[in-house]
Amino acid sequence: MAKLLLNLRNVPDDEADDVRAMLDAARIDFYETPPSMWGISAGGIYVREDEDVAQAKRLMADYQAQRRVRVRAEHEAAVRDGTSETFWSVLRAEPLRVVLTVIAIVLLLGLMALPMALLGGFL
């Protein structure tokens, strides 16, 4: 029976490509499910054979450890160089998105506080 190896929700394309290549190189039979039309399921990479699952998980753990080290080093280098994304760089690049996000947060907080205010008689 097939086992899920990697849920593709919030997985960058390069990571999914690396995992596919890793499974191909190890000659592990797998298949991929596409994301659903409405975004309920993000899709996934499944290992077909039960006897390959343990090897696939070992390979995946090794890959994730290597990727973690590489990505952290890249991020630290970007912070040192001043090229990493910060709140202020996003605000300069996309001010409308930031303002709309802040407005949405304030409205949601107000909506969450409204029942307490109504019950407590604060309004």
Rank of each mutant, 00 (worst) to 15 (best):
Leu109Val: 06
His75Pro: 00
Leu109Arg: 01
Ala16Ser: 15
Arg27Pro: 00
Ala117Val: 05
Tyr46Ala: 07
Asp24Cys: 04
Gly82Pro: 02
Tyr63Met: 14
Pro115Ile: 11
Asn7Gly: 05
Arg70Lys: 13
Leu96Trp: 07
Leu8Val: 07
Ala61Pro: 01
Val102Gly: 00
Pro115Phe: 08
Tyr31Arg: 15
Ala65Tyr: 07
Asp24Val: 10
Met60Ser: 09
Met60Gly: 11
Leu118Arg: 04
Gly44His: 04
Ala21Met: 06
Gly39Ser: 10
Arg72Val: 05
Phe122Asn: 09
Pro12Glu: 08
Gly44Ile: 06
Met1Trp: 13
Ala77Pro: 04
Val71Ile: 15
Val19Arg: 03
Glu49Asn: 15
Gly39Val: 06
Arg20Glu: 14
Pro12Ser: 05
Val99Leu: 12
Gln66Arg: 15
Leu96His: 10
Ala42Pro: 08
Trp88Asn: 05
Asp62Asn: 04
Thr86Arg: 03
Thr83Leu: 05
Leu5Asn: 07
Ile103Gln: 02
Glu15Val: 08
Gly39Ala: 02
Pro34Asp: 12
Ala42Tyr: 11
Glu32Tyr: 09
Leu108Tyr: 07
Lys3His: 14
Val99Glu: 03
Leu100His: 01
Gly120Pro: 00
Val99Thr: 01
Leu96Pro: 00
Pro115Ser: 09
Thr86Phe: 02
Ala54Asn: 14
Trp38Leu: 13
Ala42Asp: 12
Ala77Lys: 14
Gln64Ser: 07
Pro12Phe: 08
Trp88Ala: 10
Val90Phe: 02
Val106Lys: 03
Val106Gly: 04
Leu109Lys: 05
Ala26Gly: 06
Ala104Leu: 11
Ser84Pro: 04
Arg9Glu: 11
Ala73Trp: 10
Gln64Trp: 03
Ala104Ser: 11
Thr86Val: 04
Val106Pro: 00
Ala93Gln: 06
Val53Tyr: 15
Gly44Pro: 12
Val102Pro: 00
Ala117Leu: 14
